[in-house]
Computed example of a mutant assay.
Amino acid sequence: MTDASRIATPQGRTLAYHLTEAAGERPTVVFLGGFNSDMGGTKAVFLEEWCAGQGLSFLRFDYSGHGESSEAFTDGCIGDWAEDAAFILSEVTSGPLILVGSSMGGWISLLMTRRMPERIAGLVTIAAAPDFTEDSMWAGFTEAQRLALEMVEQVALPSEYGEPYVITKRLIEDGRNHLLLRDPVPLPFPVRFLHGTADADVELSVALRLMERAEGADIHLRLVKGADHRFSTPECLALISGAIEEVLAAL
């Protein structure tokens, strides 16, 4: 595998990325990963190979504090990672984009539809988790955890994926500046939401609430019985690529 390319942001962060460019003027597919994940995950690598076979340009990258990019994970927040995404999309891609956002990447991709609406041609989300810092983390904290957040400005949460997540006061407070599900979410392009019914990290109610808030002429929610949050089985990966094909066909 080739080494990642790197680009410095105006804020002094360094982002690692892989860009595969194809001939032609079809949209570039962009994968936006989840909270504390990285661009080397199963879905990102699968989509890179799939897009190459389809003659589609493809971008995967690490937010600051994730994977191969600079900074500490605990220093980041939703605003920083959205800033990273907007910068790298503007600097290393051109033309229309199809965003594929996984978990937190679903939230970030929805924020991109507001920041650069003229660039977004379509959207696919996988277990999208908009507003999770407020509606899942903060809402689920005990009084002791809230007190710890106030006193020492961080709290550790257990994770099924490895080391505990250290959640900072800044992450929670900054997340409140980027909440989406309190208002309509205009999505005037083909959209496919994917969600597994066995997802233990993002409740099905989040997908239903997003579907309720979303406004557009071509928006579909596909529920996959038994699929978990990883959504990385061969069957699930085929559903992701199929959703991209549907978006392309609708353009």
Rank of each mutant, 00 (worst) to 15 (best):
E143T: 12
Q145N: 10
R146F: 02
R146D: 00
E150A: 13
E150D: 10
V152F: 00
Q154D: 00
A156S: 14
L157A: 04
S159Q: 03
E160L: 09
Y161W: 15
Y161D: 15
G162M: 04
G162C: 10
P164R: 09
P164H: 12
Y165A: 09
Y165M: 07
I167Y: 10
K169L: 05
L171F: 15
I172K: 13
E173R: 06
E173W: 03
D174K: 06
R176K: 15
N177L: 14
L181C: 02
R182Y: 08
P184A: 12
P184W: 01
P184Q: 10
P186F: 04
P188I: 05
P188A: 01
F189K: 11
V191H: 02
R192G: 06
R192W: 00
L194W: 14
G196T: 06
G196A: 00
D199M: 04
D201P: 00
D201F: 12
V202R: 02
V202K: 05
E203D: 15
E203S: 12
E203C: 03
L204H: 09
S205E: 15
S205Q: 15
V206N: 12
L208G: 12
L210C: 08
M211C: 04
M211N: 07
M211V: 05
M211Q: 13
E212T: 12
A214S: 15
A214R: 10
A217G: 14
D218L: 03
H220T: 14
V224M: 06
V224K: 10
K225M: 03
G226K: 06
A227S: 14
A227G: 08
H229D: 13
F231Y: 14
